[in-house]
Design a binder for these strands. Structure first.
Lengths: 153, 153
DNA sequence: ACTCCGAGTAAACCGTGTTTACTATCATCT
DNA sequence: AGATGATAGTAAACACGGTTTACTCGGAGT
């Protein structure tokens, strides 16, 4: 195992793809939660983000949301209960099927979701300014190719 | 908020940078833990990964590791206790200062760390094969520029 | 010696995950 | 129609990892 020396500059080859993805991904998570809280959407925490990510929970059923998020239905159900208590969504009976339920954003929930997307777009603006529009588009395109490739499932 | 239609293909512009980073970052995490477990390094879980990431805990002090990982000293201490119980490291008194302690990988710990790096290099090979060497290098370079830029702290 | 600070640790508590177990509804078979 | 089995959602018990609070002990300054 070779480590870079303290006083020699870190270079691309020193960093493995794990850290290169993880560090910004976590930073973005923190940023979104922070900005949501500052914007008045209190009580939102990291686990809640499982619901605020694309395409959002609106109109979906708890079981589907659990599967999307990769957690059990019971865990999802408590997340939903928590967000319902905070006023971001409601669960109501599905009109067509008696055992099913439907998750609906409240006005506040829609506002929070819109704000999250807005923060993300702001982050994209910042990255675009840093990298230049050409390279930022390239970065997204490369990441998209990875996403498409199923290397990632 | 515009959603892509069910039957129209997803495109780069549909994905925000958050998901494009998060999904592969999480996949890599799962992959590393899985491969470590399969390779006989049992008991390692996601929170342990906070210690197995570059540059590893070997020779460092608990407080420093806590700061690096962004968790409290107490939480780090329990992680260390857990890994010590699993035989991956030991904590011993620092020779110079009575109150300080030093974390040392055991042989098993070194082996696990080396395996984690190996898995990461394997993942890089796979991505390189998918994207082509040119574009993979470009991806890492672009991510490295983001990392350098401090957009990310 | 006395005080203060800082590293490490321990305990209580909280939130979030899983596992296990239950209820209610739907689909199917007879 | 009634019985049976599968499925959506929920609830409770437990595990686990995080923070907060509180303690011990060594080092530094006076």
């Amino acid at each position: 195992m070779t480590f870079p020396q303290e006083n020699s500059p870190v270079q691309t080859r020193d960093m493995l793809i794990g850290a290169l993805l993880r560090v910004p991904a976590e930073a973005i998570h923190r940023r979104i939660i922070h900005d949501l809280n500052v914007a008045g959407f209190r009580g939102l925490t990291l686990p809640h983000m499982a619901l605020f990510r694309f395409p959002g929970p609106d109109g979906a059923r708890p079981g589907v949301l659990a599967e999307r998020a990769g957690i059990s239905k019971q865990a999802m159900n408590r997340l939903l209960g928590s967000l319902e208590g905070l006023g971001y969504l409601v669960r109501s009976d599905a009109p067509d099927e008696g055992r099913a339920r439907i998750v609906r954003f409240t006005k506040r929930g829609h506002a929070a979701y819109a704000k999250a997307v807005e923060v993300l777009r702001e982050i994209e603006r910042e990255w675009r300014a840093e990298l230049g529009p050409r390279d930022f588009a390239l970065l997204k395109e490369l990441l998209f190719r990875v996403w498409e490739s199923r290397l990632v499932r």
